[in-house]
Write a protein that binds this DNA or RNA. Structure first.
Length: 420
DNA sequence: CTATAACTCTCAA
DNA sequence: CTAACGTTGAGAGTTATAG
């Protein structure tokens, strides 16, 4: 038995907690660089605005309906998220934090309880303690719990934001599933929906009753598992401890186009510093550095260029300076003048545990572990970028746009209204 | 020829 | 005033390459 708890319009709801006047105001939260819509209030959804719509395309609609837009304030959302996870953790010994706004709870042995009432308690407590609206779904598998959550949100089964599929007979479930399009199933995206529809699999019920072996042959083992999960056979277990990353990426679009190598070099250094910090936090070393830059793919009259390069390191490392040097070495090789670059990114690949580090065959400058440790500690105490590599630059004129940002209410004293 | 590396595609939030 | 379209990570399957 699983529960899936998911916040409603999470980023929008976080903004409203600290600015209650925004309740019922049509509003959106924008992606990095104030680019696309990534969260919509119900009022905006009702206007037909799709997830991922570029903000500039909404100007007219926004003006006529008074839609308010906010830059995404990740320090606020991350903090609210961790508070929410802490509240929910008390409801089960097993919790999997699946994303910033949702978690699974493992409910083995809860079979005899009134799950719907249990879900209501979660909802009430999260609402009281945090001011956030959430919905709760229960099912025998993670896929069913996800689907139950969707039913709760749409008021298709259950009531008041909670849906317990486990209490329904197969006939009752089939009735609900037959009314749900197949793309509502976790793991069925745009492409798969297209191909399933061609095979006359249109609804969740069509998929549930399809032959798993046939689908495995035609598609993949993933889809086979999904079909079994829809039938109550658990193929996915709860992952309560997040495994270490196998790759770490950092990339960002620029606030304005960058044309020259020094500008790109700064950006690459900043992204690498972030990635290296994550790398050290999980106690890994990177064996390969990848770097890429690209022009704006949406500007079809401009010349396009999107090169990338992998740089194998002589020894795996977590030393920021070494990693930056490798990335910039690669950048120099792929850079060509005459293009308007819109984005740069780096990746750390071939990660291995620090404990298994190989002793270098050829003597070279040792990694500066204690320096890295001090740097991480200073930045943890005084804020990101307090101590940084000179390669990251001072002006950073390429930095992303965030022109509509709300204060970091829960993590920065000086951003609180009325605090000097 | 086979095992692995590297890359592509899809999906998720 | 004009131009303006996200980020990170995983897994499966396919293709390229090394030995």
């Amino acid at each position: 038995m699983f529960a899936l708890i998911d916040a409603n319009n999470f980023y929008v709801s976080c903004e409203r907690v600290f600015n209650p006047k925004l309740a019922h105001v049509p509003m959106v939260v924008l992606s990095n660089n104030d680019g696309c819509v990534v969260a919509r209030s119900n009022e905006v959804k009702a206007l037909g605005v799709k997830m991922g719509t570029p903000w500039f395309q909404l100007r007219e609609l926004a003006e006529t309906h008074g839609i308010r837009a906010f830059s995404s304030n990740y320090s606020l959302y991350a903090d609210m998220s961790s508070r929410m996870m802490n509240v929910l953790a008390v409801y089960s010994p097993d919790q999997e934090v699946y994303s910033i706004d949702e978690c699974f709870l493992g409910l083995a042995g809860f079979g005899n309880h009134d799950l719907a009432a249990y879900g209501q308690r979660m909802r009430t407590q999260v609402r009281q303690w945090l001011g956030l609206p959430v919905c709760v779904g229960f099912g025998e598998t993670k896929t069913l719990a996800k689907l139950a959550n969707h039913c709760a949100k749409k008021n298709l089964a259950g009531r008041d934001g909670v849906c317990d599929l486990t209490q329904l007979s197969q006939t009752e479930r089939s009735g609900i599933f037959a009314a749900l399009p197949v793309n509502e199933v976790w793991g069925v995206g745009r492409r798969l929906t297209e191909q399933l529809n061609q095979r006359r699999i249109l609804t969740v019920e069509d998929l549930r009753t399809a032959n798993p072996e046939t689908l495995r042959k035609a598609f993949s083992v993933v889809l086979e598992r999904t079909v079994r999960e829809l039938n109550g056979i658990a193929c996915q277990s709860l992952e309560s401890v997040a495994p270490n990353k196998q790759q770490i990426m950092s990339s960002r679009s620029f606030g304005t186009y960058v044309y020259d190598l020094p500008g790109l070099g700064e950006a690459v250094a900043v992204y690498m510093a972030r990635a290296a910090e994550k790398l050290r936090r999980q106690g890994s070393l990177a064996g390969i550095v990848q770097v890429y830059i690209r022009t704006n793919p949406f500007k079809d009259n401009a010349p396009q260029y999107h090169p990338s390069l992998s740089i194998p390191l002589p020894e795996a490392t977590d030393d920021t300076a070494r990693l930056i040097r490798a990335a910039q070495w690669g950048l120099k090789r792929i850079y060509k003048p005459g293009f308007a670059y819109q984005k740069a990114g780096i990746a750390l690949l071939d990660l291995s545990p620090q404990a298994n580090a190989q002793i270098p065959l050829f003597a070279s400058t040792p990694d500066r572990h204690s320096l890295m440790q001090v740097m991480d500690r200073i930045n943890a105490t005084f804020g990101r970028g307090s101590l940084r590599s000179a390669a990251e630059g001072m002006q950073q004129s390429w930095r992303m746009k965030r022109e509509r940002m709300s204060p970091a209410y829960t993590t920065q004293w000086d951003e609180l209204p009325g605090v000097g």
